[in-house]
Design a protein around this nucleic acid. Structure first.
Lengths: 224, 224
DNA sequence: TTCATAATGTACGAAATGGTACGTTCAGTC
DNA sequence: GACTGAACGTACCATTTCGTACATTATGAA
């Protein structure tokens, strides 16, 4: 007697226990669903269907819908933070480094619309879930530290204006990069302007970089 | 025989027909609910409860949930556009005028968090509803026109850099002002920084104004 | 007054939806 | 092989939720 059975439909029906895979599968599908439809818009049944496993398993591993959402949110943050990794700015001169940093951030947001959506959704919820997550808070910082280093170097060479704070600078860069992805639809529609078009994205990117540089670099070093 | 009856509880029960009031009441409640919980999160039953009228009336006047949402979205846009009204920049010199315009936009966003939320929600829906609305598209423009005028005047006086476009400038200002309201919760939490605190809001406001000025005004006119 | 239509109240239905009860199988340990 | 806890499948339940059927009242016109 072997351990596998034959189901009614004649298919081989050997069940494999693979908790890691199952869990990862659920997380993958859930993240996409929540990011697309929000916490209230996503349907557990639909998530289950798109999974290789069943609804039962979702509740087995994740307790309830909100817990699943929180885990999906954390996963989103983890993934983008990983990608942020190696920028290697130390060998560049300050202005060049800052320019690269901004360009990278802008691009990085474009490449991760799902993450942007999760953040939007979480803000709609008044950040109720992110507040509970120590994990997310633990893996922040990196971006600001890089910026801090660059800014300090720019101060030393005398190219940057003094008196700015890295965190606030980061806020400005984030705002411009985030908005570019988050508000595409409404902005395009209202002003009848295809913000998504490659040519316009290029324009915006260079505007944003230029804007940050003009804000940080001493004016006498900027050509008109 | 009078036209009014006495209900079981003894209360006077004269029904008044007041379509305008009823409709406005529904719209008021619906807008708040949708802005708070989104399209899928808002509940028709709850909207009905918070109304002076009944669920029946919602469907009588608004067909279905999505139509109600669209109308609420349109109402949100209308309201903020109205407020935008009189800025009176023409009598100010260009730099001063631009500064005022940015300050006003920044403040204006802060004063209308419900509107911001509606826009966020609509973007989560890929702008599916705003696309259907000719009304919303019809009442745009204003902000850009004002900016356009100021920019032209600044060019004439030679204080502004040439080559910029009003729409893109507006995009930058909007991005900074919008993000300040839309991403408060997550940003505060991640960087452990109370973005909402009055002192920090003041800082951000002056950063934003300064940033735009430095971007538009010729560098040689800017003090360090 | 009559009459037609707009406006409103009450109650209900059908489907969707989050969550669970209950039983079975897998996989490692003794 | 016997045993045990983790992993999994199926079917189901209770409630919520959007939407409607049906009856009634208000209001202005003829």
């Amino acid at each position: 007697m072997t351990t596998h059975k034959v189901a009614a439909n004649g298919k081989e029906r050997t069940r494999k226990n693979d908790p890691v895979r199952v869990k990862a599968d659920i997380m993958r599908v859930a993240t996409r669903e929540f990011s697309e439809k929000g916490l209230s818009g996503a349907r557990i049944d639909e998530i289950a269907e798109k999974t290789k496993t069943s609804k039962r398993m979702i509740y087995y591993y994740f307790k309830d819908k909100e817990t699943l959402y929180l885990k999906a949110l954390e996963r989103s943050y983890q993934q983008v933070r990983q990608q942020e990794g190696e920028l290697e700015l130390d060998h560049l001169e300050p202005i060049e480094a800052l320019s690269k940093l901004v360009a990278f951030t802008f691009e990085h947001h474009i490449k991760n619309p799902d993450f942007i959506r999760m953040v939007m959704i979480e803000n709609i919820h008044h950040g109720r879930f992110i507040e509970q997550s120590e994990l997310i808070q633990s893996l922040n910082a990196g971006a600001v530290d890089e910026l801090q280093k660059v800014y300090r170097r720019g101060l030393e060479t005398g190219q940057f204006r003094p008196g700015l704070e890295a965190l606030e600078l980061h806020w400005l860069i984030s705002a411009l990069s985030f908005f570019n992805v988050s508000n595409r639809y409404t902005f395009s529609r209202i002003f009848n302007w295809d913000q998504n078009a490659a040519s316009n994205q290029e324009k915006l990117a260079s505007h944003v970089i230029d804007m940050v540089l003009r804000y940080v670099v001493k004016p006498e070093l900027m050509a008109d």
